[in-house]
Structures are given as structure tokens and as C-alpha cells.
Simulated scan of single mutants.
Amino acid sequence: MQERLEGKVRDADGCEIAGPRQAPFKGRNKPHRGDRKWVNGWSPEQITNRLQIDFPDDESMRISHEAIYQALYIQGRGALKRELVSCLRTGRALRVPRARAQAKAWAHVSENVMISSRPAEVEDRAVPGHWEGDLIIGLNRSAIGTLVERSTRFTMLVHLPREEGYGLIPRTKNGPALAGYGAVTMANALKKTVADLPVELWRSLTWDRGKELSDHARFTIESGVKIFFADPHSPWQRGTNENTNGLLRQYFPKGTDLSHWSAQEIQAIAHALNTRPRKTLSWKTPAEALNEYLKSRGCRR
């Protein structure tokens, strides 16, 4: 059992491979991935169930995964010795009580704004005006809002500059949201973006469950755009947006500070995507598809 928990990495000949030397552990939070040991350890649940297979007739070789956890973590505080934290796959120094783990902070998502309440016309993509949105996150709490129209794949990017005082005011729990995508700031930025297109092109917006859109009720009242939220851990329900975010990562790689991009530069990237031919549009560009719809309705951009 000890060998399974340690999870030492060995080659095909059984020789142990030490791997990169870890940095000294500081603090109680997770070490940076680059500072953690190679970890191939088995979870307590894997050990518990494997013992039944390896020793089917030996009742003494039985132990629950909870007993293993209790043996590892200090009773009372539920903490783990600091030198062992970097060996864990999750890197958690503290055990999270089950009740706390199950309590999701999704109070802003009620039944009437669930994706199941979305109009049926959204699914077939026949009528433009139904959008999907999310954030792409960068270093230092930077972000860019992404909006994609489901029918034409037309993309709009939302510039989210940091609020005044960011970096000067120490971060505190429940303190002011200065990173640029707090609930109020996000709703205001989206409302400004909505005004750039005709009203009939904004029928609904399906968003992830992030708290950045917890002010959605005010946004809907002021803009007229209905907000719907996807189910938990269901990115495929916003597949168009997820695919577009993958394309955007060519321009905004992970691990970069997105606040370095100006509003003009961000709009240039959106223009690049909107003028790129798409197979799903029979090789038309999203901009062409949108313009064709507007012309058929006698509207102007």
C-alpha cells in the first residue's frame, strides 16, 4: 500500500526514475505544477478496490478508502504534513468536507434561466440572434469576453480592462472586484457590446455558470437580451463558443497576460475570425453570412 501511495515512477526494467527536483514547499496552498514531483500514485479508492482483486480470498486484506484518508491526514484539522503535499496528484493540503464540496455557489442560476428553458428555435440555428458566451482567462486575473452567434458564427470580443486601483488595493475576501470581469463590470461591458448590432440580432445569450454574469437580471432588463446558463460541467452545450475559444487561443495563448491587448487589437482579432471562410457556412465568412441575413431583413449594421 505504501508503494501505491508513493507512486514512484519506474521504467520498463523496474528502475526508479527520480524526475525533476522539486522546489521547497512554502505555504499551505497547492505548489505550482512546475515545482511538484512526478506523481503516479494510486488514489485510496483505487487501492481499496484493487486489494479485492489481488487478494480475493484474504479478508484481512480489506480496508476502506476513508480509513486510508484518515491515516494520511491529521485528525482534527484534516491537514496533511507539508512535505507530503507535493507528492499528491491534487496537491491539496487540506481535506474539503463533503458538504462544502457539494455546495456550489450558483445562487444566481435559477430554474427559469436554465438552458432547458431556452426557446426551441435556438437548437436548429435557423434564426440568427442566439449567442453563446464565455471568458478566456489569462495570467494575473486578466480576461477577454467572447460572444459567438450560433447561426452565422459571427464573433464579438469584449474588452475587459482592469478597474482603477487594481494592484494598489490589497485583495481581500469579498472585496471590490477590480480584475475587469466582476459582475457589475461584466454586465455593463456586455450591454455596451449589444448596442453595436441591431436589436433583432440579440434574442438570447447562453453563458457558462461563472459568477461574472451573476448580475444577469439587470442586464436583461436594460438590454432586452434573455440570459440562459448551461448545465454544470457541460461545455458541449455551448459547443460553438468552445470551438471559437479554441481558435482564439491561436492569438491569445494560455499563460499570457491578456490585459496587454488593447480594445483596438482585440477587435482586429475578431475581424480576422469574421473574415475567415468556414466550412460549416459553405465557405462563406461569418461576416458575409451575417450581412446576407441583415440585407434580407432590410437592416443595416
Results as ranks from 00 to 15, higher is better:
264 Q>A: 15
250 Q>R: 09
245 N>G: 02
263 A>M: 13
254 K>M: 10
245 N>F: 09
235 P>Q: 04
251 Y>I: 03
248 L>E: 10
240 T>V: 07
245 N>C: 11
239 G>V: 02
260 H>I: 15
256 T>Q: 13
266 I>M: 06
263 A>D: 15
254 K>D: 01
262 S>P: 01
254 K>C: 07
255 G>Q: 11
241 N>P: 01
236 W>D: 09
238 R>H: 06
260 H>D: 09
245 N>D: 11
242 E>H: 10
244 T>Y: 06
259 S>L: 02
249 R>W: 06
238 R>G: 11
241 N>G: 12
262 S>V: 13
256 T>I: 07
261 W>L: 12
236 W>M: 13
252 F>P: 00
246 G>S: 10
242 E>Y: 13
246 G>Q: 04
238 R>M: 06
245 N>Y: 04
268 A>N: 10
238 R>W: 03
245 N>W: 09
260 H>W: 08
260 H>F: 12
268 A>G: 12
240 T>S: 15
248 L>G: 02
263 A>S: 14
247 L>F: 14
239 G>D: 05
242 E>N: 07
242 E>G: 08
266 I>C: 03
251 Y>D: 06
259 S>E: 04
267 Q>H: 11
260 H>T: 12
262 S>N: 09
244 T>P: 00
268 A>Q: 14
244 T>I: 10
236 W>N: 10
264 Q>M: 12
253 P>R: 01
249 R>A: 10
248 L>Q: 05
253 P>K: 04
266 I>N: 01
238 R>P: 09
244 T>R: 12
235 P>M: 07
251 Y>P: 00
240 T>A: 05
241 N>W: 08
258 L>Y: 15
257 D>S: 07
254 K>P: 03
249 R>D: 06
243 N>Q: 13
257 D>M: 05
